[in-house]
C-alpha cells in the first residue's frame, strides 16, 4: 500500500512484509502475507495455535529467510525483541545486570532505569536462573527496552503468567509505549487481555484472514469462524477483568 504513506511523506513503515511466504522443511507456514508496522502503533497478531504467529515475528527480525516475497526493515532499525521463552542453561552464569548489557554493556544506572520501566527495579544483582517466570519476562522486556527500540516485538510474552500477571504486563507495555513512543507488535493467543489496547489487529491462520481495528476484527466473520462464539466478550473482558469460560485452547506450545 505505498499510496498510504506516499501522500503524507512522513510515516515510512518501520517493517514492511510484501507477499511473504515462509516454508520450513517443505511445509508452508505462511503464505502471501502483506503487512506493515508504522511508528508508534500497537499491532496485535492473533490466531490459533500453529497459525504462524511466532514465525511471522521471527521473519520480521530476520531469523527466518522468506521463501518468497520480501521483509523490509527501515535502515538501522532498532528492534526490541521479547521471545516466547528463553531457556537459560544452568552452566551459563549470568546476572541480570550482565544480561541487560548484552550485546552492548550498559552502566548500572541505565540498567536500573530499564528495570524500573519494566516494573522490576530490584533484580539487578540476581542470577537469571533464580528468577520467577514473571520476573524473567520483565527482565527480557527491560533488555529489549535498553536497545532503545523503535519497535518492540513481543512473542506471547505473557506465557507462564497468570491472568492478573498478564494483564499487568500488558498495562506495563502500554505505559512503555507512552513513555518511549515505540511501535509495538504483540503476538498472543491470550485473547482476553490483548485486544483493546491495539490500534490494529491482524488475524492470522497461515495467511491474514482479516485485519483492522479490534472492533472490526472481533465482528469479522473470519475471526468468528476461527475463534467461535466463546470469545465474543473479548474486549469487554479486557476492560473489566472478570473471568469467563472460553473454548479456545491455551495449553499448546507455539514455537515453530
Amino acid at each position: 500500500m505505498p499510496g498510504m504513506y506516499w501522500n503524507t511523506g512522513v510515516t515510512t513503515p518501520l517493517i514492511t512484509l510484501k507477499d511473504l511466504t515462509i516454508r520450513v522443511d517443505g511445509r508452508t507456514i505462511l503464505e502471501n502475507v502483506n503487512a506493515s508496522v508504522s511508528e508508534a502503533e500497537i499491532v496485535t497478531i492473533v490466531g490459533p495455535n500453529g497459525s504462524g504467529k511466532s514465525t511471522l515475528l521471527r521473519a520480521m527480525i530476520g531469523a527466518i529467510p522468506p521463501a518468497e516475497g520480501t521483509v523490509h526493515r527501515a535502515p538501522n532499525l532498532r528492534i526490541g525483541y521479547v521471545p516466547q521463552k528463553l531457556a537459560l542453561d544452568a552452566a551459563l552464569p549470568m546476572t541480570v545486570q550482565r544480561f541487560l548489557g548484552l550485546p552492548r554493556r550498559v552502566p548500572a544506572q541505565e540498567a536500573v532505569q530499564a528495570l524500573e520501566l519494566a516494573g522490576v527495579p530490584d533484580l539487578r544483582n540476581r542470577q537469571m536462573t533464580k528468577l520467577s517466570g514473571g520476573q524473567f519476562q520483565r527482565v527480557l522486556l527491560a533488555r529489549a527496552l535498553l536497545e532503545k527500540p523503535q519497535v518492540l516485538l513481543l512473542d506471547e510474552a505473557t506465557q507462564g503468567l497468570d491472568q492478573p500477571g498478564a494483564a499487568a504486563f500488558y498495562q506495563r507495555i502500554e505505559q512503555v509505549r507512552r513513555d518511549i513512543g515505540c511501535a509495538v507488535v504483540m503476538v498472543s493467543h491470550d485473547l482476553h487481555v490483548v485486544m483493546a489496547a491495539s490500534d490494529r489487529v491482524l488475524c492470522l491462520n497461515g495467511h491474514i484472514c482479516c485485519e483492522g481495528s479490534p472492533r472490526t476484527v472481533a465482528d469479522a466473520p473470519e475471526y468468528r469462524a476461527l475463534f467461535g462464539s466463546g470469545t465474543k466478550g473479548t474486549m469487554a473482558l479486557y476492560q473489566h477483568q472478570h473471568s469467563h469460560s472460553h473454548d479456545h485452547d491455551h495449553s499448546h506450545d507455539e514455537a515453530h
Partner: peptide, 18 residues
C-alpha cells in the same frame, strides 16, 4: 558479546543484528 547473545538465544541475536 555477539557469541554470548547467540548462545543465549539465536533469535535475540538476529533482533540485535547479529
Amino acid at each position: 558479546s555477539a557469541l554470548l547473545v547467540a548462545t543465549l538465544n539465536p533469535d535475540l541475536a538476529y533482533a540485535s543484528g547479529i
